[in-house]
Write a protein that binds this DNA or RNA. Structure first.
Lengths: 233, 233
DNA sequence: CAGTGGTCTAGACCACCCC
DNA sequence: GGGTGGTCTAGACCACTGC
């Protein structure tokens, strides 16, 4: 994997993030002030503030004008943001495995509104059971236009689909998500090893390329019990 | 209500937002480029970019290096972000009414971990049914330390509690939220006018002041069916 | 009153897109 | 190659905090 050139703001972001996660900066404590950090990293204040802004978005710190920038305690961390579950975990070095439940080709039908395609246009339709560190974690159910992914086959499904889309030359731009509370039915309860009737999240994703083409529609059901987030006034 | 002095970036943000919501800028279309906007608003590029960054956070636009800044279609709008329901709606000129279900004073007990108080310390405990444009929308169940809010009484509960906290001299800094899927029981179904067993969201808030004092713990159950959000790669 | 973060400027160079 | 947004600088003044 080629290492991307890092911008200064990203390098500072990562360094400060490590210092927070490693406990070098203590929760509720103040970080060094901006002028000190500017000198340490040899950057202008604008660049430093970009890095700090990124930390704020992650819920790692918050600032108060006139007082300082403070490290948040871990329960504020936005590590459980609304991103793709698989991606999040792969990034943390955990094993993600997939079992293909089915793989078929179907006409676009009712989904023509989402894909802006004729109702006869063929879609690849698959479903997977996904395991995190060996335990069932998520069931997905996805549709992708065949004309965009000619060489997509059952083998492909074992890896990350976002990576696959990028190897096809598409750049993922947006992911429109809709989160709904549902109750687990027989089928889902079985696949996720939970009790029938358990309330869980279902998240639908509509994934767009930079050309505003819909690359994928996927509905994910995970056995996550809660989403934590933070808002700062 | 005193009008706050608006910064340039906020003024530009609001103006562009209006132009998008009013249809002056069309979905999928490109906005004027940055140098044009800089001249129009007579600001530097940094300031303009701050305004655009704010629009991005709201899901109103997205940018692609080398291509331009594009207006998102309405389904991307983050108007349903994870903020306080009451606040969101009041801001849009809709009527919010509250019916107090109960109001009492209880010892801190099990909540001493959250409030960092002794288990004998008194808390105000209340619950409200909240109506949006006359229809039941949300049920809350809240605890607040009595020693911070000496003059809090049943009357207070009819207005916005966030505003009340500020009139007491506290500045709200953080809101830690936990969102869970639950199924409506008899009690909740009745209050929200939905069927028993309907899956819905429960959101717990822990609200901190700038001094890291916990001002309120509130558990909200609303009859919102879904949360929409957007992520940009 | 000294120190902090918030806002703002007027430039510059670069990476990327599209023609 | 011309135009776009992304990054970055070296300043400046302001609003707010806390002693």
């Amino acid at each position: 994997m080629e290492e991307k050139r890092m911008t200064k703001q990203d390098a500072i972001y990562h360094d400060l993030k490590n210092k927070i996660l490693s406990g070098y900066y203590q929760p509720w404590g103040t970080m060094d002030n901006e002028s000190v950090l500017c000198k340490r990293y040899d950057v202008s204040r604008t660049t430093l503030q970009k890095a700090i802004q990124h930390l704020k978005q992650d819920g790692l710190v918050h600032s108060r004008q006139g007082a300082g920038t403070f490290v948040n305690p871990p329960e504020f961390f936005n590590l459980y943001s609304l991103r793709s579950l698989s991606e999040r975990n792969a990034a943390r070095g955990r094993t993600v495995e997939s079992k293909v439940l089915f793989y078929e080709e179907v006409p676009c039908g009712n989904l023509s509104d989402i894909f802006h395609l004729g109702s006869d246009e063929p879609l690849v339709h698959y479903s997977r059971q996904r395991f995190l560190d060996g335990k069932p974690r998520l069931v997905d159910n996805a549709y992708m236009p065949r004309y965009l992914f000619r060489n997509l086959n059952e083998e492909t499904l074992h890896g990350s689909m976002l990576s696959y889309m990028e190897t096809c030359g598409y750049t993922v731009s947006h992911d429109l998500q809709t989160i709904r509370p549902i109750v687990a039915d027989d089928h889902i309860a079985n696949l996720l090893c939970i009790q029938v009737g358990t309330p869980i999240f279902q998240t639908d994703h509509v994934i767009y390329s930079t050309r505003n083409v819909v690359l994928q529609f996927v509905s994910e059901i995970s056995n996550e019990q809660e989403i934590k987030t933070q808002s700062v006034r």
